[in-house]
Design a protein around this nucleic acid. Structure first.
Lengths: 194, 194, 194, 194
DNA sequence: GATGAATGAGGTTTCATTCAT
DNA sequence: CATGAATGAAACCTCATTCAT
């Protein structure tokens, strides 16, 4: 990678970060390309030297998101844990990985994915499916899981997404108990409700 | 209610249905007021005789949604059931109540709620909170629930929302197992994973 | 005139008064036909049973104005006065005749007349010209006027219009001295400035 | 001022001139932004790169008017004249300064000022008040003025405005005698009517 | 590659006018 | 004659995108 390339990449990232901030604040549709340009400190036209169009900014952010989430998709480190701890981690990790800036981004991308078939598809194949697949593998290798691994994964993933959605919708009570929630839910899941 | 009122209400509903269809198909932002007018078979200006502006159409749909969901919020009929059956119903009912037209609407409203603070707030206070409150009551009165009712409700609601979100994102595998999923998840929850 | 005619005339006048109020408050262009209808307490469509279109309302008001001003156009009563008194009356009368509601109307009609050739023409032939003509006659018959009657009329009419315009533009200082102004200006005019 | 600034200023002025022409021809309200754009030979959107909205065009014209009238507001050159000549100039100058393009503009701006409080206020403080103030000063320093300077100014300004208004309303007779009118009126004023 | 003025299609909304009731 | 919902043309304005500098 030449210096030139590096500069280019830097500016691309710089613009993408600006887009992340503005999209997060006002949403994709309410944000103008000019908003992004101003936030990045560049001219309107410069955006188009790095991205084909406004939508490409959103796709770029989505890609950034999936790449950031990838480490969490390969839960090799979870092998030695007790089942309760494992569940706790499986609930906690996704939630933790989305704190801060990324958290706002999920809102924006998710919002658009709910409407845009392509983005929804990319969301599933790029994020959900690999996450589930990796998790199924981990569960399958364990001996202490009485339940069907696939059902368990479905349960866990739905739980995580549901929690995420509620947080994204501004549920403050949820965010306050965010710290202890994985523990308590893991307890419930392990022992059963009856 | 006079005849005139009835006609007015009818047309309002008619327009709202047209809005539901177009919004569901193209999303709120990509839909023009003219699209809605054409779908309703009226002139552009007629929309504004019944709704203050385009956003009021979205709000109208949201209200329609909450009113349609209200029956599901008062689970009085669930008193005599076994715990497993109760859980099954609690998972199944919300999912069932959103089949068909309403199902598409959730996508649209949810998409906008993720970005619009007001709508998010309305979504929580109009749908989520009453649903949770009703459910907590039902659980509290039972003697066979070992777990904390509030935690249980949090668990169930997150599960439902997560499933809903996945379905909204087009997860076909989920939709295929939709029929048996409540049963299987209820089993898992009652007995625990270990 | 039958009773029916009287009722019709009454309603026409009623609507015209409503139009006067609303036009005076918001101006002709910023006033909607619905505004007028609401002010008159009738339905939108009723306006069109009495006036061909919105512009006809303005014309109606203009006609009303000229008819109201007509008495002032025939200054038969001014024959016996001293010159100074005559001038004072000639300045004072037009200003007085426009107090209250009519005063606001002048603003509206004048505003439109400045742009609309037809209205401007009607304004001149219906108001200005007859006023000038009548005044010239009165002046001509006097022996104590040293100056040319036509020039004098031009002077007086311009003065009146200028004062009117300044008042219409909201000159508060002018309105405060409104009571004594004709006297003082008449003094100046009779004696000369040198 | 850089070249870029100059170009920008030029285009702003260019658009403003186009607005002047179209407003003068059809009036402010009957003129569409598209009309102005066409007259300026630019695209609709370009207007908004130089003016915030349609009303800003009117304000721009008003400012242009006041700036054009400013030289006439400082009558320093009138010190050495005889009273009769002074009056003649005071009547003539404002009328002369509004010939040609500006003359049409007065019609448009005045028309709107009669309805719009803000514009009326700006009209008074930006044009009338400074004109009057400057004139009072000049009169005060003279010894040959028998009359009260403030009354005299009020008389003169009203006269000028009245003449202007009549001209704006299309009084052709007035426009024909426009050349000799200041002379004759000055005579009347100096000598008095009796 | 960077700039930002220019573009013009297209969006939302208003409102004078009509007409069936 | 009165009503007021329906109409749809047309207005103002935005903004993604282009391109000459």
């Amino acid at each position: 990678m030449t210096l030139q390339d590096k500069l280019t990449t830097t500016k691309r990232t710089h613009i993408l970060n600006a887009a992340a901030r503005t999209f997060a604040e006002k949403g994709y549709h309410a944000t103008t390309v000019r908003d992004v340009a101003r936030a990045a400190g560049v001219a309107d036209g410069t955006i188009y030297n790095h991205f084909q169009n406004k939508y490409a900014l959103l796709l770029g952010l989505f890609t950034q998101m999936t790449e950031a989430a990838e480490p969490a998709l390969n839960p090799a480190a979870l092998t030695g844990l007790h089942l309760r701890e494992l569940l706790r981690e499986m609930l906690d990790q996704p939630l933790q990985s989305l704190r801060g800036e990324n958290y706002e981004l999920v809102r924006v991308v998710l919002s658009e994915a709910l409407i845009n078939r392509d983005l929804a598809s990319a969301f599933r194949t790029g994020l959900l499916t690999p996450m589930l697949a990796g998790t199924v593998e981990v569960l399958r290798r364990r001996g202490d899981l009485r339940a069907d691994p696939e059902d368990t994964v479905r349960l866990l993933s739905s739980l995580v997404l549901g929690l995420l959605l509620q947080a994204a919708l501004g549920d403050e009570e949820l965010q306050e108990t965010w710290a202890v929630l994985p523990d308590r839910l893991a307890d419930l899941l392990v022992g059963g409700l009856a």
